[in-house]
Design a binder for these strands. Structure first.
Lengths: 185, 185
DNA sequence: CAAAACAGTTAAGGCATCTTAACTCTACGC
DNA sequence: GCGTAGAGTTAAGATGCCTTAACTGTTTTG
């Protein structure tokens, strides 16, 4: 019913997840994360970083002393790692199993990494390792799948047990004329 | 680099996608979509609906005359259908292929439906129909996969070509002590 | 060690989305 | 055909996340 509203109640927002990952990356690569480095890496202003730090601090995800470096707390670190793992699993699944182009895979993974539940991430990891393995069924899958049809055959409404009245594929790929949709300001 | 920032530049936001779907559903089920119906179905105030309608109208996604019914434009309708299809495909994939619990699958699908690119949705549809089909490989997959390990074996850093230094699964499921993370206000 | 260069913060403001409160329409009962 | 219930709108305010501009603190350097 109101699941959609919980979008704004995730433990961290999309922005927050990326700030946390950035701090983790900087810490790993340079040994410390400064406001300016974070701003550069994310492409936002330093004042934006300062205020986000305040917000992350209020949630117990980072610590920071004025004019000093930013550190992840244990929860912040956990969240950063989990998001990063989720992204890696998603990207691998999209490229290696679904065969989606790398750039699209990375963009999609970036968008949804923090929204996918651990349950689903774990299952994605499982199916990805299974289908990449040398298990005979995995090998057969790779051969058979790449030869499988890219779309369902033309079918009457109701003929396909997945599609129902209208072909799912059609509605996923159809464009409105040639006019691209207006992009949000 | 800045992919993460395009989160706010999707053609429609999470909220907008749900408003569009709600209008489509009401139109289908009751023949018309009124402000109050939309507000009830989404669990928001009527004034919230009014202002979102203004915003959707500015993007050419709905039409609405004062005190009247809300209608989807062709682009709005396309977007609503696409989002709905994306959600159906995702849910099916998560439940039927990954075997994730229905409730979790629906929540995750609701969160990410509008963020998944058509390319990925189409491939998800393809793999889902393939693995649900009576193709011999699909049958073998179902048998073999359900018997496959739920986690990678204990392994040294670098031993698993997917995990790298730390086990992905570990970082996906690990909790910080017993303390649940603070939820966003 | 002082001045300049650089890093970080605060303040003020914009946009999206939501809320409540108060107002305005519309339409039905009589 | 008018009054009122209820549907819808506007206005004002909150929050999250971003910006620019102006200020403050720190560090480098000559």
């Amino acid at each position: 019913m109101d699941v959609w509203k919980r979008f704004g109640e995730k433990e961290v927002s999309h922005s927050m997840a990326h700030y946390l990952q950035t701090v983790a990356t900087l810490k790993r690569e340079k040994g410390h994360a400064r406001v300016g480095d974070i701003a550069d890496m994310l492409g936002v202003s330093k004042s934006g970083v300062t205020s986000m730090i305040r917000s992350l601090h209020a949630r117990g995800l980072v610590s920071h002393e004025k004019y000093g470096c930013v550190e992840l707390t244990p929860s912040g670190s956990l969240l950063a790692e989990r998001t990063e793992s989720s992204r890696r699993v998603l990207t691998m699944f999209l490229t290696d199993i679904l065969g989606v182009q790398a750039q699209v895979a990375e963009e999609d993974a970036c968008m949804i990494e923090h929204l996918v539940s651990p349950e689903v991430s774990v299952e994605l990891l499982r199916i990805t390792s299974f289908l990449r393995s040398d298990h005979p069924v995995a090998k057969q899958f790779r051969d058979a799948y790449h030869a499988s049809p890219r779309s369902c055959a033309e079918h009457a409404p109701g003929a396909c047990d997945m599609c129902g009245a209208t072909c799912l594929r059609e509605s996923l790929v159809r464009e409105v004329g040639d006019a691209p949709l207006k992009v949000r300001a």
